[in-house]
Design a protein around this nucleic acid. Structure first.
Length: 293
DNA sequence: GCGTCCAGGTCTACC
DNA sequence: GGTAGACCTGGACGC
């Protein structure tokens, strides 16, 4: 399976855009030039794939050579990969903005700005919930426990990200103990039950045409998702109006713009306001610039 | 090895 | 509307 990406696409920059590549079922190689994950086509069919870029073409290789995929299933996998890698995202205006700023000229040069997302919105929301109020090490532990204990095992020994319905069947006590997600357990359980009972349809968020403010409010109405998490989930939807400020952004901003002096979130917000609807992505590029060098 | 303290966002009760 | 405290875990630190 292959995808012809636009000329401004770069797989390595997309993989390296943020920490998602480090959370299972994602995994990558040393140079972050290839990405593996599991695409769940149904409750019973999970396909372990490797994504790589060869001669300006994105290749998708199923890792289980014996698996049979219909034409429809192959098309579905290709569409999910397009969505994960943000291949159809138009960044021309963003790149023009970056070219005007001396310190951001590296962004179009490295074809950065496409932020890796999970196969599903649900997976993105749960992982974002797991980044709140803890170290990255704990985020990894929680995600590893969730996939290993509730995900489906593929024939080559990897585990898929579990469906909301699977998690919803577990108790809060079980999630606390087995997933190590602590006080997040009731939030996770409520989200999964609401999805199972069709009270909320998070998968529609990526293609929704409601305003960014409304989408932000919808995200904030999910227990366990606050201003930081909602702002960053919006970036994964392709809306960059919110900064999603966390301790890392505060630290990097003070180092980059204030000689290490701490500033309030209002000061950070005001600084990026001049970038309009691209401000969230500009902020992300600034604070992660050294990851790309 | 053990105990203590701290960092990390979000929620809720209270003013 | 603003604020303080609780939530839970891993890691750093001191003993």
């Amino acid at each position: 399976m292959t995808i012809i990406p636009p000329v401004d696409f770069n797989l390595q920059s997309t993989i390296n855009s943020h920490g998602w590549y480090d959370l299972p079922p994602f995994r990558t190689n040393e140079h972050k030039s290839e990405l593996e994950t599991i695409i769940s086509l149904s409750k019973l069919k999970h396909v372990h794939i490797r994504i790589r870029e060869m001669n300006s073409v994105v290749e998708i290789v199923p890792m289980n050579k014996t698996i049979r995929l219909s034409k429809t299933e192959k098309e579905k996998i290709k569409n999910i990969v397009r969505s994960m890698l943000r291949i159809d995202e138009q960044l021309n205006v963003f790149y023009l903005l970056c070219k005007k700023e001396k310190h951001l000229r590296w962004v179009p040069k490295r074809q950065a700005g496409r932020i890796l997302r999970s196969p599903t919105m649900f997976e993105d929301i749960v992982k974002m919930m797991f980044t709140t109020n803890c170290s990255w090490a704990l985020t990894k532990i929680m995600t590893e426990h969730l996939t290993h204990k509730l995900g489906a095992k593929t024939s080559d020994g990897l585990f898929s990200f579990p469906a909301a319905e699977t998690i919803a069947k577990k108790s809060e006590k079980w999630l606390r103990k087995e997933i190590s997600c602590g006080y997040r357990a009731p939030y996770l359980l409520k989200l999964c039950k609401d999805i199972s009972n069709k009270k909320i349809d998070v998968e529609s968020f990526r293609s929704s045409d409601i305003s960014t403010e409304e989408l932000y409010e919808k995200l904030c109405s999910i227990k366990g998702i606050g201003h930081y998490a909602a702002g960053n989930i919006l970036k994964l939807i392709g809306r960059y109006d919110y900064l999603g400020i966390d301790s890392w952004v505060r630290k990097r901003f003070s180092e980059l713009h204030k000689n290490g002096r701490k500033v309030s979130d209002d000061v950070i917000e005001q600084h990026y306001n001049r970038y309009g609807t691209w401000r969230g992505l500009i902020c992300l590029m600034e604070v992660t610039a050294d990851w790309h060098t």
